[in-house]
Design a protein around this nucleic acid. Structure first.
Lengths: 197, 197
DNA sequence: TCAATTCTTGCGTAGTGTGCAACATTTGCG
DNA sequence: CGCAAATGTTGCACACTACGCAAGAATTGA
């Protein structure tokens, strides 16, 4: 854990800038905030702001937590029913997000109104999903099946966060359970050729 | 069908600008094309360009075909197995897209490298998906189930286009069939609690 | 302590996006 | 038809974004 002073400062500045960005963005909307203001609020020059982030949208999003390698491996090397392994995987990831709930909430606010920020996050999610697809290919053989499962996973996460943002008194874990039940039910519907439900 | 001259010109100019944007974007990347160039190429002033589109990314995407109302109604008022109705719905939509295959291909190129364009399209897709969710609520009662189904549908479309872009000699319909089989198979996996497959 | 490396900053500049006002075109009505 | 209202186009001015460059400050390792 030899983190140099430089490195620590870099991390701190990056975070300072992100927090300054989100704070101002939540107050008045990211569109109505200039990079100059953000930089001033974070205590750096405008030029330095751009040394850290290529634009204010990226500054707002920061570096979202990716799927952890251990969790991905546990998912595709799992021995139980895929369904259970996937549920565990998702819960693990939600715990991972719980650490930064305030930031998550602020980012949600920004995403709702800012197209560019959405696109940046979307790009990140696509990468994560593609990687998850790759991993799942080791477990399910058929690429399209793996892709469908990976989509279900990332979508479930998105819907979970969305639900959690709307329903005040709901933890991320509880929201995931609701979303998960919906996913399973929808799978039953799609797996069946009878006209029930 | 009384379309005024003004309206027709507007449509034509909008399309001219979109085509000029896509042409230049495919050649050199949308980042390396200025609005000024696009406007000149489309035969209008820079200012007029911004009267039609708020930015070049929007110009590239244009107005993507939304789900048709009749198709949505057929889906949620359908009497057969949901699975079959959904498959038909997706095929209908792909036919809908087939009309503009060249544009679709160019947009795909742009989306791969441009975050802002992705965000704009994502916003459009979110609206479509939310509307589809609303419709599906009439058929499946539980909101989370409807949301999961709507996600499956829009994701399937995205994966279909992605597959179609990669595999040269594959129609949109054929690509959808492959994606669809993957979706069904993944649904079986998620519906089952046994550790098969 | 000193030299290499890295970070910060100001300045200059190309490009984006909008408000405004003048001018041109289309439309609908008498 | 002909004219007034509505709508569309354009140039200009301006604030803001984002990046290259180079000078100078801070951090590192020897």
């Amino acid at each position: 854990m030899t983190v140099s002073l430089r490195e620590r400062r870099r991390q701190q500045t990056a975070r300072d800038i992100q927090l300054a960005t989100l704070k101002l963005a939540v107050e008045r909307g990211l569109e109505n905030v200039t990079t100059e203001e953000i930089a001033a609020s974070a205590g750096v020059s405008t030029r330095t702001f751009f040394n850290y982030y290529v634009n204010k949208e990226t500054a707002a999003i920061g570096a979202p937590p990716a799927f952890r390698k251990e969790d991905k491996n546990a998912l595709c090397d799992g021995t139980g029913a895929l369904r259970n392994d996937l549920k565990r995987f998702l819960h693990r990831h939600m715990e991972n997000l719980t650490k930064d709930e305030p930031i998550l909430r602020m980012i949600g606010t920004v995403l709702r109104s800012n197209e560019k920020a959405r696109g940046i996050l979307e790009g990140f999610i696509i990468m994560e999903r593609d990687e998850l697809t790759e991993h799942l290919c080791r477990r399910v053989q058929n690429r399209q099946v793996a892709a469908a499962l990976a989509s279900s996973a990332t979508d479930a996460i998105a819907r979970t966060i969305h639900l959690w943002e709307q329903e005040k008194n709901l933890t991320l874990g509880a929201a995931l359970d609701m979303v998960w039940d919906g996913l399973i039910e929808s799978s039953h519907l799609l797996a069946s050729t009878s006209k029930d439900a």
